[in-house]
Structures are given as C-alpha cells and as structure tokens.
Design a protein around this nucleic acid. Structure first.
Length: 325
DNA sequence: AAGATAATAT
DNA sequence: CATATTATCT
C-alpha cells in the first residue's frame, strides 16, 4: 500500500505543547483516571473492560460532568451504584485543598465507585476531532486512531467513538439535503440548507471530502490537507473543563448539570483547554499500519473559532480552510 | 440533544 | 481478544 503517500503524517511529530502552559493544577482530588483505575468494581462477572485504563500521570483535570446512572432492566440486577461527584476548578483557582477526598474524609464519601464524568465536546475539541479525521482520511478514521491523533488528555476511545457516531450521522444527514454544491464549509450561509443546525457540528468547517465518498470507494485521493508546520499557536487541551463558575458550593455534592460549554445566549465561551501532556505516557503500539509512526503522535493544531451568535441568524466568522486556519 | 454504555460485529 | 460499529438509554 503506498505508504509513500502519507503526506498527512508528514510531520506532526514535533509539535508538542509548550512546556510552560501547564496551569497550576488545582487538583484537589484524585484524578479520575486514577480513581477509576483503582476502583474498578472488581467483583461481578466480567471484569475488565469498563474502559481502558492507561495510567498516566496527568495532572490536568478533566472536565466532564458527572452523570449518575442506574440499572433499569431486570435482566441485570444487583449493582451497587453509588453516586459520587467530584468537581474542580481549573481556571484561576487555586487549590484549596481542604481535605476532602482523601482518606479520612469526615463524613461520608465513599470515594469509591467513581465514574467518569461526562465529556463535554466543546467546539475546540470538536475542531480537533474534525481535523484529525480529515487528516486521517475516512478510512483510517477510526476511534482509536483519532483519539491518538488528537492527543487530548483524558479522552478515551469510547468518547471518540461516541462522538464519531454522531458525527457520521451528521454528515449523512447533510448529504441528504445538500445538493451539492458547494460546499461551503460550514454551509450556513444563507440559511435554508442549514439543516439541523447541530450546533456543535455546524461550527466546524466540515472538510469537503467528507461529504462525498461513500463507503465502497477504496480509493482515496485525499486532497492536500496538511498542516503548515510552524507558526501556530497551539493551546493545550485537556479533555476537561470546569464545572464552571460555581463558586459557592460546598465541596460535597454538586449537581453536575449544566455544562458551560454551550451558553444559551451569549457571545462566546472561553475555556482554556490543554493539550495532552507530552508525558511519557505509554504509547499504545500501532499494529500493522504502514504509517511511520514513531514518536508519540502529537499534533500541533490550530484552533480558533467563535461561537455562533445567539439570536436570530448566525454568522460564522471562521471561514473554511484558507490554507490554514 | 449529547454523550455514555451495552450489544454486536469484524 | 481487541477494536469498530450499532443500538439503547439517560
């Protein structure tokens, strides 16, 4: 197979995040991963599979909200589901480590049974996702690979898979009602064909070739999509965010609701995302893949975009890839 | 609607 | 067996 064509892979290797962007971890609580890794309910039948646990020493936090889930079907009864919440505030905060979560915990914090909070796909994150998919080509755009290319800390394969599923539906849906024209990325131009305005998806400039090329075409001539090396401000991202400004709230239970990712009516949001640390995290091996994947896939990305506007129409400022965006 | 998780397929 | 895709649930 023509590995020679891997121009996309050309050279992302060396674009790791700046060393100094690590914000002071305000991590007061156990890292979810850690917790999860440790706490996996190990009794019950089939263990191992809940999710992959990669032990990495990430210090950043994840955002993610917590969602409690419970059993419902009679077929699988018994399951001590305890609901636990954890929160934290990355930005500007400092860590007030009031002893919570730790050991003695003065009250009642099972601290066990920790689930992973919901990931909030913010536009930036999605953008990364799309870029990754674009660069991989529809063919290689499978969850694992995408995840790796995105290099977003805390992002799991399932996260990507789930999102990918939705994204595919979105693409299909669009194909349906878009005649072909043009592609104005993002479409949205005048209205009408905007279709479902899937908020999130609509915000990123869907790569052209996505909309066509149905399955069955083994050929792939991906156009030239490449990221200009150098000069890009890449912010780091971490798959997380904050439980948003909820200052006054006792560090105990807090209703996870409300992601701050989508402001109901405002101009923009802003959250510092951090890219996954170049930490020597164990790199999963890529099996047969012609691609020369040596160093940990880390990509430098460009991210910038605004949120749609609030009332009435929306103007997308972020134009499509004009060379690079 | 958005994301997780169970079920199923490769 | 690991990973991908599909289906369901919350």
């Amino acid at each position: 197979m023509r590995e020679e064509d891997s121009n996309w892979f050309s050279r992302w290797e060396e674009e790791l995040p700046p060393p100094e962007d690590l914000m002071p971890l305000s991590q007061t609580l156990i890292t979810p991963e850690l917790a999860v890794a440790f706490d996996i309910r190990h009794h019950a039948t089939a263990p191992s599979h809940q999710q992959n646990l990669h032990l990495q020493q990430q210090q950043q936090s994840f955002h993610l909200q917590n969602q409690s889930q419970q059993q419902q079907q009679p077929t699988t009864p018994s399951n001590p589901t305890a609901q636990q919440n954890q929160q934290q505030q990355p930005s500007s905060g400092d860590f007030a480590d009031s002893g919570e979560l730790g050991s003695g915990n003065g009250g009642d914090e099972p601290a066990r049974t920790l689930k992973r909070p919901r990931l909030v796909w913010t536009p930036q994150l999605h953008k990364r996702f799309v870029d990754a998919v674009a660069h991989l080509g529809i063919k290689n755009a499978v969850p694992k690979t995408i995840m790796q290319l995105m290099s977003v800390d805390g992002l799991t394969r399932e996260n990507v898979a789930s999102h990918l599923q939705k994204y595919r539906l979105y693409l299909k849906r669009m194909q349906g009602l878009s005649g072909g024209g043009g592609g104005s990325g993002g479409g949205s131009g005048g209205g009408g064909v905007d279709a479902a305005t899937d908020h999130l998806f609509a915000s990123s400039p869907v790569p052209p070739h996505f909309l066509q090329q149905g399955r069955g075409n083994s050929d792939h001539f991906l156009p030239f999509v490449q990221v200009p090396p150098a000069l890009q401000h890449h912010h780091q991202m971490v798959a997380a965010a904050a439980a948003h400004p909820q200052l006054q709230q006792p560090p105990q239970f807090h209703r996870p609701v409300g992601h701050f990712g989508s402001p109901p009516n405002n101009g923009h949001f802003d959250h510092p995302f951090l890219s996954r640390q170049p930490q020597p995290q164990q790199q999963q091996q890529l099996h047969r893949m012609g691609a020369p994947v040596h160093s940990p896939v880390a990509a430098g990305y460009v991210e910038d975009m605004e949120s749609a506007n609030a009332s009435g129409g929306r103007k997308v400022l972020t134009l499509f890839p004009t060379g690079d965006d």
